[in-house]
Simulated assay, not measured.
Amino acid sequence: MVPLLLVLLVALLLFGLGFAVKVLWWAAIFVFVVWLIGFIARGTGAAGSRSRWYRW
């Protein structure tokens, strides 16, 4: 009975980890797309301007 519970616990843990990794991949893709849009939208300026799209 205990080995069965351990196998089920490991399977549940791996399923949860896989779901979390998939969510993190989608979040990373979303952040990258937002960064890319910001880079393209603010990156085009006058030839002599020193405008930056980030604020640090």
Rank of each mutant, 00 (worst) to 15 (best):
F32T: 15
F19I: 10
G45T: 15
L36A: 15
S51F: 08
I29S: 03
L13D: 08
A41V: 15
S49A: 13
L4Y: 04
F30R: 12
V31W: 04
G16L: 11
L17C: 08
F30H: 03
W56E: 13
W56L: 10
R42Y: 05
L12Q: 00
R55L: 12
Y54K: 04
I40S: 02
A11I: 13
L14Y: 07
F15G: 08
L12N: 12
R55Y: 08
A46V: 02
S49P: 00
V10S: 04
V34K: 06
Y54R: 05
W25G: 02
V34S: 10
L24G: 13
V31T: 14
S49V: 06
V31Q: 08
L24H: 14
T44M: 08
A11E: 08
V23K: 14
S49Y: 06
V31M: 10
A46I: 03
F32E: 09
W26Q: 14
A47L: 12
L12S: 06
G18D: 06
A11N: 02
S49I: 03
G18L: 09
W25D: 13
V34C: 11
L12W: 04
I29A: 13
L17P: 01
L5S: 01
V33D: 12
V10G: 02
R55P: 00
L36M: 15
V21A: 12
A28I: 06
I40R: 05
W25F: 13
P3H: 04
F39C: 01
K22I: 07
V34W: 05
I37F: 14
A47V: 11
L14R: 07
I37Y: 00
V2E: 09
K22H: 10
A46K: 01
G16R: 00
T44W: 10
P3Q: 06
F15L: 14
P3V: 03
L4R: 02
V7Q: 12
R50V: 03
I40G: 04
R50G: 15
M1D: 13
L5M: 08
S49C: 13
Y54S: 05
G16D: 10
W56I: 14
I37P: 00
R42K: 14
L8E: 03
V33Y: 01
A20M: 07
G48E: 13
A41F: 05
G48I: 03
V21F: 12
G18M: 02
L17W: 13
G38D: 13
S51K: 11
G48T: 04
G48Q: 01
I29Y: 01
G16E: 04
V34R: 06
L36W: 11
S51W: 08
S51D: 07
L13R: 07
V23C: 02
W25R: 15
A41C: 01
G45H: 12
A28G: 15
F30N: 07
L8V: 00
G43L: 05
V33M: 03
L24N: 12
M1L: 05
V23Y: 04
T44V: 12
V23A: 14
F39S: 10
G38P: 01
A47H: 00
F39T: 15
F30T: 07
R50D: 14
L6I: 11
G18W: 08
K22G: 06
